[in-house]
């Protein structure tokens, strides 16, 4: 509880600092030459707050938020499924893995955000160009973790399952998949964040809906308060998604020892 109090205190201090530094005329300007310049560049916390309240009160935000979340969810799901499938395939097939290795490395080191304009051309300005961008970002995170996870399955475990009579298919289901899952879940936290990045960056580059679009519009009219409001809303929902992944993870990974749990004999 003490920790929670301190955490809230940090937020209050940051907001207070933000307010004091930007409120026009509260303290004499020491960097900008006019009193309202700081507010122009950095926004004002109370105004940001009211923008958010108004968004939710009028319901204006929901359509945009829904689009962004849909893009995120689709990018996340499709990217994860592809990453899982191809990660399993390449990890279990040494030849395919050896052939694909340089291309995988190449695609991974490429700054994939540069693909966004191409996706806009291919998939139009609707949600699919954003989903495609999210998929390319999510895919590699999940892929590498699955690949690693399958590669690091203990040879003992595989030999034991084989001696117990497991077929190749049963090995995949009972050994490789569950073993890879712990790695996958470690990567899903990252993947959710990246799917969000894909959605929002895609919206920046061209869209007619979404929170990224709202932010872009506000930026066009130098409405910094709305920009900050958009950023805050996005952050809050990214945190919520991350928590959702965490709770699914806790439910599915009950077999994993927690650090604090003592061994019961």
């Amino acid at each position: 509880m003490r920790l929670r109090t301190l955490q809230i205190l940090v937020v209050c201090l940051v907001v207070a600092f933000w307010y004091v530094m930007t409120a026009p005329g509260l303290i004499p300007p020491f960097y900008f030459d006019k009193a309202n310049r700081a507010a122009f560049f950095f926004g004002e916390p109370q105004k940001v707050f009211w923008v958010i309240v108004e968004w939710f009160a009028t319901g204006e935000i929901f359509g945009h938020l829904g689009v962004t979340l849909l893009e995120t969810a689709l990018g996340f799901l499709i990217g994860s499924v592809f990453g899982l499938a191809i990660g399993l395939w390449l990890a279990l097939s040494p030849t395919a893995s050896a052939v694909m290795d340089p291309y995988i490395k190449g695609f991974n080191s490429m700054p994939r955000v540069v693909l966004a304009p191409i996706f806009a051309v291919w998939f139009g300005l609707g949600i699919w160009s954003k989903v495609a961008l999210g998929v390319t970002l999510v895919f590699f995170v999940v892929f590498f973790n699955v690949y690693q996870g399958v590669r690091e399955v203990s040879p003992n475990l595989i030999a034991n399952a084989r001696m117990l009579g497991a077929s190749r298919r049963q090995l995949l289901r009972s050994i490789y998949l569950p073993s890879a899952m712990s790695w996958v879940f470690a990567s899903l936290h990252n993947a959710v964040g990246l799917a969000f990045v894909g959605a929002v960056v895609g919206e920046y580059l061209g869209s007619s809906r979404g929170v990224g679009y709202l932010i872009l519009q506000a930026e066009g009219t130098f409405d910094i308060n709305t920009v900050f409001a958009g950023i805050l809303v996005l952050t809050a929902f990214a945190l919520a998604l991350d928590a959702a992944v965490g709770s699914v993870e806790r439910r599915l990974m009950t077999w994993q020892p927690r650090a604090s749990e003592t061994e019961k004999v």
């Binding site: 003992n156 475990l157 034991n160 001696m163």
Partner: peptide, 15 residues
């Protein structure tokens, strides 16, 4: 044949 390994070979995700 049944094989009992030196190291732990139980599936940690199974009860």
């Amino acid at each position: 044949a049944g094989y009992m390994f030196q190291a732990d070979a139980l599936m940690p995700w199974r009860t």
